[in-house]
Structures are given as structure tokens and as C-alpha cells.
């Protein structure tokens, strides 16, 4: 009998789409029940959104002032306490889940499985290694709790239309005070969220400067897309870190991905291989990005972007 607990990711008011994708993965287990835990200072609004997802049995709302910010050291003892009632504990493979879930696993004295991309059975999975250059099939032991993260780019968000019961809960766990939240900078943008957007326009080092990178933002706004970037563009300081797509940035799966001035290092390609259609625009016809692109155009991006914007207008 499988009972799954999902740890919700949210910002205090909205449920992050990664949670609904983690739920889709959980539903592939054909488990007896799937519950979602919302840890927050005041999680009513988020719990309501979680309860509206189809396939959820119960939403556990754990309100505590200490849970205002998602500090792994504070959340992990609470998750570990709840885990006693479950066979599986899942989180998204986002910076939130990657920070938290290994700490939970270690408190439980079990290993952790990272980046589930396919569920083959309640304890058999596939996951990528070596920047996606290999995919392994892994069997997990069934005699202990399985703690895992879900590669959210491999899953569609679970649909809404459910009406799960929300239960307020207090968890009896000793919480540390050695870790304190300071501030969160950036992230406020009217543009679509990179991780869940249907369309993404990404720029690379070839843009040459932060000023010229504005061309990417302009095109993205024109077609209602999120903006991404290669590691090189982030390292060069053209755009902030949260726009990085790739092995060590965000792994995304938009319907349309337009890569402009990005050569296509393997570490970047691993972040986009689940995209529906990849468009590559690059002046070097030999760039590796063209090996994976569905539509390629060789040329000068400074000419092409304005032309493309005009043509799409």
C-alpha cells in the first residue's frame, strides 16, 4: 500500500506550478492516497489552491510563524515527523526541493532519489545523470520511506477541478534557530515565469551586453514569452542568475523555445531537451544548437530580431 506526501512549494500566497507537476508524477505511482503538505505562516490561500488540484486526497495545512520562509533547516524536522505516516515523500526538483528533501532524507536515515523523470512502478524509476547524457533505471528499497525529488520538466501540471479536504495540523518538532531568513531579491517581473511558461526566448553571450540583451526582452514581450539565458550570458552579467537555463540552472519544457546567440553547450541543451519546438538563431552554422533545433536560421541576430518582431507584429 502506497501513501504519498508531497511538500508544496509556494511563496506564501500562490502555489508554485512545480507542485502540480510533482502531483502528476505522484499520480503515476497509482498510490492509495496522495496528500499535499503546505508549510506556511498562514497557508490558507495556498492550501485552497492545492485542494483544487485533481487527484489529491487531503491537504495538510501546517501554520507556524517559523514557516514564513522556506528554510530547509526549519522545515525538514517537521516533514520528517509527518513522513512516519507515508511510504513516499516527494518534492519538486527546484531549488526549494533540492535544498529541503536531502535534509529530510538524512533525518530519516534514508537515501534520497533525485530528479524522477519516469515512474515505472512504486519503487522503480528513471532519472538523468551526467547532464542528461545518460538515463538510469533505479530500484529503490521498499522496506523504508522513499524520499525523492521530481524533475518537473518531465511532467505536465495536474489539472484543477478537485475538492480535497484541508486539515489544519500542528507538528510537534523541535525547530532550530541557527538559520535566519534575511531577504529575497529579484524575481518580481510581469513577464511569464520561466519555469512554467509556454514560450521562452533565450539569449546568449552573442548579445554582447546587458543593453543589447534588451532585444531579447523586447521579442519575448511581443510574443508573451518568458526570458531565459545561457550560463555565459549570466556569467557576463547581462541578466540575473534566475534566468539561467541548463544543467545547473533551470530545466524547462516550454512548447516553443527560441535560442538566440546561444551556441548550445551540452550543459545548456540538457535544460531544454523536453521543449516542444526549438528554434535556433545563430551566426555560426556549425553551432551545436542546430543539431537539436527543429527550425534553424543562420544569420546576424541584430538584424533578425527586429525583422522577426516586425513580421510577428
Amino acid at each position: 500500500m502506497s501513501k504519498i506526501l508531497i511538500i508544496a512549494e509556494h511563496d506564501g500566497t500562490s502555489l508554485n506550478p512545480a507542485t502540480a507537476k510533482t502531483l502528476s508524477c505522484a499520480l503515476d505511482f497509482k498510490a492509495d492516497s496522495v496528500d499535499i503538505a503546505v508549510f506556511a505562516a498562514s497557508g490558507e490561500a495556498v492550501a485552497k489552491q492545492a485542494a483544487a488540484l485533481t487527484g489529491v486526497n487531503r491537504v495538510l495545512q501546517i501554520d507556524n510563524a517559523a514557516n514564513e520562509h522556506p528554510l530547509a533547516a526549519v522545515l525538514a524536522p517537521q516533514v520528517a515527523r509527518l513522513a512516519a505516516d507515508y511510504t513516499h515523500v516527494l518534492g519538486p526538483s527546484t531549488t526549494f526541493g533540492k535544498d529541503l528533501m536531502p535534509r529530510v532524507a538524512a533525518l530519516l536515515g534514508v537515501g534520497q532519489l533525485s530528479d524522477i523523470m519516469e515512474v515505472r512502478g512504486s519503487h522503480e524509476f528513471r532519472r538523468p545523470i551526467y547532464a542528461g547524457n545518460a538515463v538510469i533505471t533505479v530500484e529503490a528499497p521498499s522496506d523504508r520511506t522513499l524520499v525523492a525529488t521530481v524533475r518537473v520538466a518531465s511532467y505536465q501540471a495536474a489539472a484543477e477541478g478537485g475538492s480535497a479536504k484541508v486539515e489544519a495540523l500542528s507538528v510537534d518538532a523541535q525547530l532550530p534557530d541557527h538559520t535566519r531568513f534575511g531577504e529575497l531579491r529579484g524575481g518580481s517581473s510581469d513577464r511569464p515565469d520561466l519555469q512554467s511558461a509556454a514560450r521562452v526566448v533565450s539569449g546568449g553571450r552573442a548579445l554582447g551586453s546587458a543593453e543589447k540583451f534588451e532585444l531579447i526582452f523586447g521579442l519575448a514581450d511581443k510574443i508573451g514569452a518568458a526570458v531565459g539565458a545561457s550560463r555565459a550570458a549570466v556569467d557576463a552579467g547581462y541578466v540575473p542568475n534566475e534566468l539561467q537555463v541548463g544543467q545547473t540552472g533551470k530545466i524547462i519544457a516550454p512548447e516553443l523555445y527560441i535560442a538566440i546567440g546561444i551556441s548550445g553547450a551540452i550543459q545548456h541543451l540538457t535544460g531544454i531537451k523536453d521543449a516542444g519546438t526549438i528554434v535556433a538563431i545563430n551566426k555560426d552554422g556549425e553551432a551545436p544548437i542546430f543539431e537539436v533545433a527543429d527550425i534553424g536560421l543562420v544569420g546576424d541576430l541584430f538584424q533578425i530580431i527586429p525583422e522577426l518582431e516586425a513580421a510577428l507584429g
Binding site: V110, G111, L113, E124, P128, G132, N133, A134, V135, I136, T137, V138, E139, A140, P141, R144, K273, I278, F290, E291, V292, A293, D294, I295, G296, L297, V298, G299, I304, E307, L308, A311
Partner: peptide
């Protein structure tokens, strides 16, 4: 704790088409 039963290469994306210009 985890047993790796198989290693496989990733599914390859097929190389697509090249277009000549923005209109294409």
C-alpha cells in the same frame, strides 16, 4: 540503498529544418 539496473543513452531529438530568412 538504490540499485541501478540499467544505463541508457538519452532519447535524441531529430535534427530539424533550416530556413533561409525570417519569412521562412
Amino acid at each position: 540503498q538504490f540499485k541501478i539496473t540499467n544505463y541508457a543513452p538519452p532519447e535524441q531529438r531529430q535534427k530539424g529544418i533550416m530556413v533561409e530568412d525570417v519569412a521562412g
